[in-house]
């Protein structure tokens, strides 16, 4: 396996880590207006993500940094071409973080209700925008002769990308519901369980719709499935996704959360299998697609990065596991917290 392919996989791992970990943060934010009815319940939901939400967002920064170093032309094309969408994402993440901090500063109900709405919007928008961005990458983007995308924000809002955007919202909402079932108790946990039970068929329908749509709008995504081994990933995804509602029904909360996380990993795995060796498929023929072959850094750069990753990743995984074990168990709106 060549170095560029190893980095294709490692960036995929970082994206999976981000989607699983920040996915439940964003999902809890999207859901909290519905599963938490009063101030104490909303504080409980916030406390369920309080110790970890900001650390979880670092996975996205790391994936962006790794993309910049390993595949600079891809970083340049995506971050310039999707500029306004990414700025909107940034503003949403800023408002989300501020709403968490500002909410508890004043006890007035109107103040807190306003920040609750901002928190929900600030959680929904990143999920949608990330999904739309991924949808466009999967579909392919029209690149000019210089390898740039110039159709702006409106050019990104095509039906397939919007469908993938909704799929991302459903996926993160399901993950958030699974986390809240695991971390809360009483009425919040029951409402979250209901949200997960209702959310799962929506997620499944959106995934089937996006898959069917892709055969029309992005037929190149099916090329790799000529190899029978490629089917292992969607089969694993289907098994995990089908087992999820069973775990939920039998009240195996940790298993349900792990299965929800597994379905996220499976879905991103399917996208990776579909894309490889492309990173940004080009539409229109003015420029070649950006691939692991023509868009990677030098072997020296990739080797140094790999050495850093091999040292750094175990440390990151170890302290992440430590933090989650320290904060295991159910949370309440008591003592320290939001």
């Amino acid at each position: 396996m060549d170095l560029a392919t190893i980095w294709f996989l490692l960036i995929g791992v970082l994206l999976v880590g981000y989607a699983i970990l920040d996915g439940f943060d964003l999902g809890a934010g999207i859901l909290h207006l519905f599963v938490a009815r009063d101030d104490t319940e909303r504080r409980t939901v916030l406390n369920a993500i309080a110790p970890v939400w900001d650390g979880n967002e670092v996975w996205l920064l790391t994936a962006g940094g790794a993309l910049f170093a390993a595949f600079p032309p891809v970083y340049a094309t995506v971050f310039s071409g999707f500029y306004l969408a990414l700025m909107l994402l940034l503003v949403a993440l800023i408002l989300r973080a501020v709403s968490l901090e500002f909410r508890s500063k004043v006890e007035a109900p109107a103040w807190r209700a306003t920040w609750d709405v901002i928190f929900a919007i600030g959680s929904f928008l990143p999920a949608l925008l990330l999904g739309v961005a991924v949808g466009n990458v999967l579909r392919g983007v029209p690149l000019d002769a210089a390898g740039d995308y110039r159709d702006g924000l409106l050019g990104l809002l095509n039906p397939f990308a919007l469908l993938v955007g909704l799929l991302a919202v459903a996926m993160f909402t399901l993950q958030g519901a699974s986390w809240l079932v695991l971390k809360t108790e009483g009425a919040i946990a029951e409402r979250s369980r209901t949200a997960a039970r209702l959310g799962w068929p929506v997620f499944a329908v959106l995934w089937i719709a996006a898959t069917l749509f892709s055969s029309q709008d992005a037929p190149g995504l099916w090329d790799n499935f000529a190899n029978p081994l490629a089917w292992l990933v969607p089969i694993a995804f289907a098994v995990v996704a089908v087992a999820y509602p069973l775990a939920l029904r039998t009240r195996r909360e940790l298993l349900a959360f792990l299965l929800s996380s597994g379905s996220i990993a499976g879905l991103i795995g399917i996208m990776g299998v579909s894309l490889y060796p492309n990173l940004v498929p080009a539409l229109g023929g003015a420029s070649p697609s950006l691939t692991v072959g023509n868009a990677s850094s030098s072997d020296l750069t990739l080797t140094v990065m790999l050495a850093v990753a091999l040292i750094g990743m175990p440390i990151v995984i170890a302290y992440t596991a430590f933090i989650y074990s320290r904060f295991r168990g159910k949370v309440r709106a008591e003592g320290h917290g939001y």
Binding site: T77, S80, G81, L84, M87, V91, D148, G152
Partner: peptide
């Protein structure tokens, strides 16, 4: 400067961040 990012995009994002 990036040739793929228009002055309008820069102005919109700058205005957005200043407002926020």
């Amino acid at each position: 400067t990036s040739t793929a990012v228009s002055a309008t995009d820069i102005a919109i994002s700058l205005g957005l961040l200043v407002a926020v």
